[in-house]
């Protein structure tokens, strides 16, 4: 059961065009915890003087990772969308290093999922950014807007 759900979420994440365009890779996914990473790329740079990756690219990684964490939660939402996401940028990510985000869906109600995430480069002891957000929980009964994922149940 867990495996089937994880597989569905994995397929769902790997089918996201924007995540694919950024070269994101799902490294781990288990019961409300997701780990996703992406490579440094000159196209993702925010400031060529420093070669540091743009905050927006880190946001995309965080958002995808948080969404994946929600999807893999044992409460099995049919789908999810970001309500709000706050990101704190603690230090510039080191250019040419891979960035890894780990998100944890720490609380779920019938309607909302709460998530926090940490991102780091190859120095895993010094976080690059932290995020916390609220996500919608689309019911799995096939009602309303859950239709987009209705075939996965």
């Amino acid at each position: 059961m867990e495996d089937a759900k994880a597989r569905v979420a994995r397929q769902f994440i790997e089918a996201i065009p924007h995540s694919k365009a950024l070269g994101m890779r799902l490294d781990a996914l288990d019961a409300g915890v997701a780990v996703i990473s992406m490579d440094w790329d000159p196209r993702f740079v925010g400031d060529p003087q420093t070669e540091v990756i743009h905050g927006g690219a880190v946001s995309a990684l965080m958002d995808t990772c948080c969404g994946a964490a929600v999807m893999s939660h044992p409460s099995a939402p049919a789908s999810t969308a970001t309500l709000d996401l706050r990101i704190d940028y603690m230090r510039p990510a080191t250019p040419r290093q891979r960035i890894t985000a780990r998100a944890e869906c720490h609380h779920v109600t019938r309607t909302v999922a709460f998530v926090r995430a940490v991102a780091h480069d190859e120095d895993a002891d010094r976080p690059v950014a932290m995020a916390s957000g609220a996500f919608t929980v689309e019911p799995s009964s096939g009602r309303g807007r859950s239709r987009e994922k209705g075939d996965t149940q």
Partner: peptide, 11 residues
């Protein structure tokens, strides 16, 4: 994608 929207706003 929420990340594309976030990046658009940040840029």
């Amino acid at each position: 994608h929420g990340g594309a929207t976030a990046a658009f706003l940040e840029v």
